[in-house]
Simulated scan of single mutants.
Amino acid sequence: MTLRQQQAPCKVALIVGAGPGISGALARRLAASGAKVAICARDGQRVAALADATGAAAFTADATDAGAVARLFVEVEERFGSPDFVLYNPSARAGGPLTELEPEAVATALAIGAFGGFLVAQQAARRMIPQGGGAIFFTGATASLKAYAGSAGFAMGKFALRALAQSAARELGPKGIHVAHFIIDGGVRSAKRPDPADAPDSTLDPDAIATVYLDTLAQHRSAWAHEIDLRPWVERF
Rank of each mutant, 00 (worst) to 15 (best):
K192E: 15
G95P: 10
A135Y: 00
R127A: 08
A191I: 12
L30Q: 07
V69A: 02
W233R: 12
A210H: 11
G133Q: 01
A165Y: 02
S23P: 09
F80Q: 08
P103V: 09
S151L: 05
G153D: 02
R162E: 08
L72G: 03
D62C: 06
W224T: 01
A66H: 05
F59A: 05
A121P: 01
S190H: 02
C10T: 07
Q123I: 05
A38I: 08
E77K: 13
V234W: 09
K158W: 00
D62M: 00
A51D: 10
Q166H: 12
A180F: 05
G17L: 10
V12C: 14
E78G: 13
R4G: 11
V234G: 03
A208K: 11
A191V: 14
I39Q: 00
A199D: 06
G150E: 05
R127Y: 06
R231K: 15
E235R: 10
A105P: 07
E235K: 13
V106R: 06
A107N: 02
K146D: 12
V120Y: 11
G21P: 04
Q131Y: 00
A197G: 01
K192A: 15
P194N: 01
A94S: 14
F159C: 03
A152E: 01
T64Y: 03
A48Q: 14
R126S: 06
L3I: 15
A51V: 12
G133S: 01
S23H: 03
A160W: 03
F137Q: 11
E78F: 00
T203W: 09
L204G: 06
P83K: 02
A53N: 06
A51I: 11
G132D: 04
I177N: 09
S167H: 04
G150M: 09
A92S: 14
A31R: 04
P174H: 02
L164T: 05
S167N: 13
S202I: 00
R4K: 13
L98Q: 00
A114M: 12
R189G: 04
P196L: 03
V16Y: 04
Q123H: 12
L214E: 04
R93N: 15
S202E: 07
F154K: 01
A180G: 11
A32C: 01
F237A: 14
K146V: 12
L161I: 03
S91K: 01
G17H: 06
S33A: 15
F118Q: 12
G132C: 04
D215M: 10
G24D: 08
A155W: 03
Y88R: 05
S151G: 07
V188T: 08
